[in-house]
Design a binder for these strands. Sequence first.
DNA 1: AGCACA
Length: 448
Amino acid sequence: MASVSTQPQFRYTQPPSKVLHLRNLPWECTEEELIELGKPFGKVVNTKCNVGANRNQAFIEFQDLNQAIAMISYYASSSEPAQVRGKTVYLQYSNRQEIVNNKTAADVAGNVLLVTIEGEDARLVSIDVLHLVFSAFGFVHKITTFEKTAGFQALVQFSDEPTATSAKDALDGRSIPRYLLPEHVGPCTLRITYSGHSDLSVKFQSHRSRDYTNPYLPVAQSAMEGSGQAMVGLDGKRLEAESNVLLASIENMQYAVTLDVLHMVFSAFGPIQKIAMFDKNGGLQALIQYPDIQTAVVAKDALEGHCIYDGGFCKLHISYSRHTDLSIKVNNDRSRDYTIPLTPVINVQPSVLGQQPVQNPMMGPPSQQQYNPYPPNSGQGPIPQSLAGWGTPPPPPPQHSMPMQMYNNVYMPPGTMAPPMAPGMPYPSQSTPQPASTMSTYGAGRSQ
DNA sequence: AGCACA
């Protein structure tokens, strides 16, 4: 049968439009390149690139029709064709009058992230764990969580878009480190897009929303009880008065827990000011002092019930101490004041530059070598599993205990301690938080 | 080298 050519597949003369259709573009041509191309002829108000099955078509929308006409007529008579990256591109009026960008809020970069927590036990991820995870990238202003058809979701507000973007790029598709979750909780994967919001409204501090910029925001429900020494959580559990000093007792202490090990474990959450260790009831206890309550709360929530070493050894039980400022009389292997700068001990001589620095003479040999016995089936010293970051073996315990040596360790938040859990995927260097910004993270806690 | 939400 003879096909009636009522609708020719291509019309060779298009009615003018301020939208131009471009084809034969280099693969994955960028918006910037399109703007460059159209700029000489007028104001490019919108573009859409990577169109079509081959992603080699695009649209340019000018502010005015005559600008589009100018571009078409110029190249119609030009001996040089329009080019992008040396490749000839073909121009024509589009058969549409405007570009419709189906950009949703999820595509527009902003300072607030929409986080979907995937997994059977997603609901069991606490807001504190989310706070900890996202704080690795900068100061988290606010978090709200809610239940939607998409599942358990959270909005996480950063100061600015670049910070949010660095968090999104680093965390999207990743799973929350196991050690931050209760043992029975299955894997929880984060799916992250941008939110349309720029400032979340948080009325109360509660188990579902937090405003970290305003620690004095009222706590939701009848959280206060009596004199304020104790509070009742939303689940009805009695809460102790929070403190910047934590009391840690260590159960099932099969291995030596040294000052340095404690320092390493607890400094994942913020700078440590002081540690004092002592024996009580035949067990080891330690007081760990942070500069602020907020950091202590995060550390307590993350570490409570967890074991320093794999296999249920050296299980931590953490409560808030009534102390607010420890009095450290002397720096020794059981107590230390990290706020007092020590005389520099390590001075790398020019002749040994590039070699390992000399070990701090104050310190004995590394704790792992000091301690016996090791488990029968392990020739290695135990490795603190709480620091096992994002599924990767943790760094060895610190060999030096000087404050300046510890500085980087102290301020390095958990998310930066280890490579991501996806093997072989490099951690984007740009998303690695700078110590300064991280300091502000921890520094912005409530003062007491 | 030929028009975008499938």
